[in-house]
Design a binder for these strands. Structure first.
Lengths: 355, 355
DNA sequence: CTGAAAGCGCTTACAG
DNA sequence: CTGAAAGCGCTTACAG
């Protein structure tokens, strides 16, 4: 592979001059010389070595994005947004699926550090794990000290996100919508207890209830994972319980999808017997049966602004946090509450009903 | 950020010795010295500079994956598989969404080259664009000459994929399944004309028909895109046409999802009025209403084997192409053909029916 | 077992 | 406008 040395030799100039031409610095070079260098570069199919450049700048135009799982549509969308911004600025993006595993996350950050990535963006929420966070804090402080940008798109142990979506207001709006439909007994699938973003969403649920003057009932809250299996399991938990509910508000769409599937499997009709609401508006939400009422998050835009934030941080510009609004999307999975709430109505119909 | 020089100084040894310890080469170093170096590295929070290492090896442990769009579940799944393998081997993965745009693809490959990525994996199919392919061929030949691995997971202009899924057999199997249900007039949404993988799938359709002794009718084939919008549009095209059909076989799931949505919007019931089949088995396929009959592709495994192939290529091991089998998944969207085929039955019911 | 030195490919003061 | 030279942080023959 041709190096700048060979380009310089072919053009009959010093490497300094060749560098000035191909790196498109604004250093003055005579037109004739410039042309000779360009010609040589073309002939040799010269591609500058980003590693050598990076060694000098102590930074390479690469941004790492840490996600929980790239196959989760939420994260794929955010990553795409980051990529949109990054590509325009000449950066490449490295995706790291942490599986919500502390060890993996740390090991990715270390790798990114070793590579002198210009920035690391945490797309997912942090978890409340003091030991991990202490070590992670050290790593991130070191990265910042080395001039890299660190941006959070979701709440985390070290504080508020830099760019984010208004999770609390979003869930509160959904609760308000359910209340407007007539619901008073609203169950909440809360997501993982240790995830900061899940706490924000739970807070939104509390606020929505409070706004409507409805009391908070701990028994209506199911702590779960953040995927479909967890949603299905949570439905079983609720139905096995004693507390009445007419709607299930979920902390994300995947939970709602799992709930919908399990409800269908049990012969519970949505929204006739119970309403179900999601959160995120991933693309599947519009395609299920019934289609899912949810809250739309500007995920791709979140990724774009995340990169814009990185760009500004790297340029040394002053930074301000951003909180993006969400949008209610009511589809088929929500409706008026049934005459008799679950789980009682189910037990009755099962005992007394046909089949 | 601490360099090996500082670690060496603190440990009171030469950089050569320090390097031998921290790079875990098998070069002999006395136990006492080794311990002193390790201690110094720990104290200084030393993280080796991958750029400096890469400059020496003319390669950095990074693999680029070129996909059409990371938000397409097909590609997210493949990338995840690559990541599984890459992480285990200490590599990072860069994702590049080309949007099926020649210019973007080329620019990504150039960036990857400049970064001395150890490998580039093309997850998506190549397109039949002679000019692009000529230039791309040059780039790829150069990369290989520089010692990088180039792996294709789908057919492309330069030939057969290195690791792939048996697209042709998969579609043929679905056609056979539809025939077994009683269908003879099977429409095919073929995907983009210029995409090599779409050609393989079309070939599968032809083969399936031939196996069943059914003649090929060009009018039943709709050339489209590969996304949902294209699927919806294709349904309109078929319904506006004159040719009878009782089933729609799609070249991928996204097309089938679009078809399902459009059919539902038009009041055509699936599978009562028409059967619909997809291809890929992305996770949404099981959640639609009706759930989608499709062909399961081992996407994540495809990604894993893709990386394994890279690993072997980099180690200079002999390589053999791999073709992975697919699996038929019959769900609710396929059934026996209706008494009267579309589009005639629709016209009739519209003219004569109530409402 | 240890170290001095060269060199990977670039950029950038510095001198002219 | 041009070039000689140093140096980014590492690894690896080579010498001892």
């Amino acid at each position: 592979m041709a190096s700048i040395t060979e380009v310089a030799r072919l053009a009959g100039v010093s490497t300094a001059t060749a560098s000035r031409v191909v790196s498109s610095s604004d250093y003055p070079v005579s037109a004739a010389t410039r042309e000779r260098v360009l010609e040589a570069a073309r002939t040799l199919d010269y591609v500058p070595n980003a590693l050598a450049r990076g060694l000098l700048n102590r930074r390479i135009p690469v941004v790492g994005v840490i996600v929980h799982d790239i196959t989760d549509p939420y994260f794929a969308e955010v990553v795409r947004g980051v990529e949109d911004g990054a590509t325009a600025a000449g950066y490449l993006v490295i995706t790291c699926s942490s599986e919500r595993d502390a060890e993996r996350e740390r090991s990715y950050v270390r790798l990114l550090r070793s590579m002198r990535a210009a920035a690391v963006i945490f797309a997912g929420s942090g978890f409340d794990d003091p030991q991990l966070n202490a070590e992670m804090g050290r790593h991130l402080a070191a990265m910042r000290a080395e001039g890299a940008a660190v941006v959070h798109l979701s709440p985390h142990a070290m504080g508020e996100p830099d760019v984010s979506v208004d999770n609390t207001a979003g869930i509160a709006a959904m609760v308000a919508a359910l209340v407007a439909l007539g619901h008073r007994r609203i169950a909440f699938l809360a997501g993982p207890r240790t995830l900061f973003v899940a706490r924000d969403r739970l807070e939104g649920y509390r606020r929505g209830l409070a706004d409507a003057g409805i009391g908070f009932d701990e028994q209506l809250v199911v702590r779960t994972g953040f995927d479909r299996e967890a949603g299905a399991l949570a439905v079983d938990t609720l139905l096995a319980g004693e507390v009445a509910f007419t709607a299930i508000c979920c902390a994300n769409d995947l939970l709602a999808l799992g709930a919908l599937a399990q409800l269908a499997a049990l012969g519970v009709e949505v929204p006739r017997d119970v309403s179900v609401a999601g959160f995120d508006d991933i693309s599947v939400a519009a395609m299920t049966a019934p289609s899912l009422s949810t809250v739309r998050l500007p995920l791709r835009e979140l990724g774009r602004r995340g990169f814009a934030h990185v760009d500004r941080a790297l340029a040394g510009e002053p930074l301000a946090g951003e909180l993006m609004p969400t949008q209610l999307v009511l589809r088929e999975s929500t409706g008026a509450p049934p005459a008799a709430p679950l789980p009682t109505s189910l037990a009755t119909s099962r005992t007394g009903g046909a089949r």
